[in-house]
């Protein structure tokens, strides 16, 4: 039955998912288009000193502003859609169908987290690709004017420079990138699981159940932030101790990475706990009135 649930949840969410993905493609095109005005092309040339802005340049800046706002709106908009979608399917009149299906609470909650998490991940990846395309388009437009040969850049020196910074600051770029990738991959699933858990917790309230779900969401995020902040402070004290003891470099790795790692671990723990909370509520405490 899990497969069947996943199939139907996928069908149900894919309309919005595809629509937002297409919106992302259109936005990427607009973002690229925004850098094709004369202003960007002459940014590093001699013409820039006497350059007067054209209507197209003003439009370009507005388009870029709109691009970033729309990208943020899509990402947040999708998670708001997911919250409303799950709430409707499970705890409004539609719940009378959902909760009379011959499926277990694990299957029900798990399928929703999996499918919505996958769609959130797709949208996140598209957002990154879009931003990459826009930034590359900016670089190519601007540096084309300078006639920069990218292949002639001193890549070895850049590499050595990064290695030196890594050694001096106690910072590992590879580990940092891996952590970011991990964060990007598990982030959507933990986010959806937390939303699902909080919506379900809201059902334990006597009234204003939807609102109480939102209150739970804020509370859970506050708790995660507070614990992460405490961990950050502990590692900050550690770094300061090392400096006061005469260390020649700041150990950024233990400082920033402890902060990022703790946020990832705490979010993962919270999402697992809230998954089981959602399952327990759907199994033992469901009360559709």
């Amino acid at each position: 039955m899990l497969k069947t649930l996943i199939k139907h949840e996928w069908k149900s969410v894919s309309k919005v998912g595809i629509l937002l993905s297409l919106a992302m493609v259109v936005l990427t095109f607009l973002g690229w288009l925004a850098f094709q005005t004369p202003m960007w092309k002459s940014m590093y040339s001699d013409e820039m000193a006497d350059y007067t802005m054209h209507f197209a340049d003003i439009m370009s800046i507005l388009m870029l502003l709109g691009y970033f706002l729309a990208i943020i709106a899509i990402s947040y908009g999708f998670i708001i859609y997911v919250a409303i979608h799950m709430y409707r399917k499970m705890y409004t009149d539609q719940g009378y169908l959902t909760h009379t299906l011959p499926v277990s609470a694990h299957q029900l909650v798990g399928s929703k987290i999996l499918v919505n998490g996958i769609w959130y991940l797709i949208i996140d990846i598209l957002m990154l690709i879009s931003m990459f395309v826009v930034v590359v388009s900016l670089l190519f437009t601007v540096f084309k004017g300078l006639d920069v040969d990218f292949s002639a850049l001193p890549w070895n020196e850049i590499k050595e420079g990064i290695a030196m910074v890594e050694a001096e600051m106690g910072f590992n770029l590879g580990r940092f990138l891996l952590t970011m990738i991990l964060l990007m991959v598990i982030g959507p699933f933990t986010m959806v699981a937390i939303v699902m858990g909080c919506i379900s917790l809201g059902q334990l309230a006597k009234s204003n159940k939807g609102l109480m779900g939102f209150v739970w969401y804020i509370a859970v995020n506050m708790i995660i932030s507070i614990i992460a902040y405490i961990v950050q402070m502990i590692s900050y004290v550690g770094v300061m101790d090392e400096l006061l003891a005469g260390s020649s470099y700041m150990n950024l790795d233990s400082f920033y990475m402890a902060s990022i790692d703790s946020t990832i671990v705490l979010t993962a723990i919270a999402s697992v706990i809230l998954y089981f909370v959602a399952v327990w509520i759907n199994k033992k405490k469901i009360n559709l009135v």
């Binding site: 009378y96 009379t100 299906l101 011959p102 009360n287």
Partner: peptide, 26 residues
């Protein structure tokens, strides 16, 4: 039908408590 949980007491449908099996029959 399982959309509301009893405060106390027991429900058996065809000898089984309300759950996946009973929902397949109701």
């Amino acid at each position: 039908t399982g959309v509301l949980q009893p405060t106390s007491g027991e429900i058996l449908i065809d000898g089984k408590p309300v759950g996946v099996e009973s929902k397949a029959k109701v």
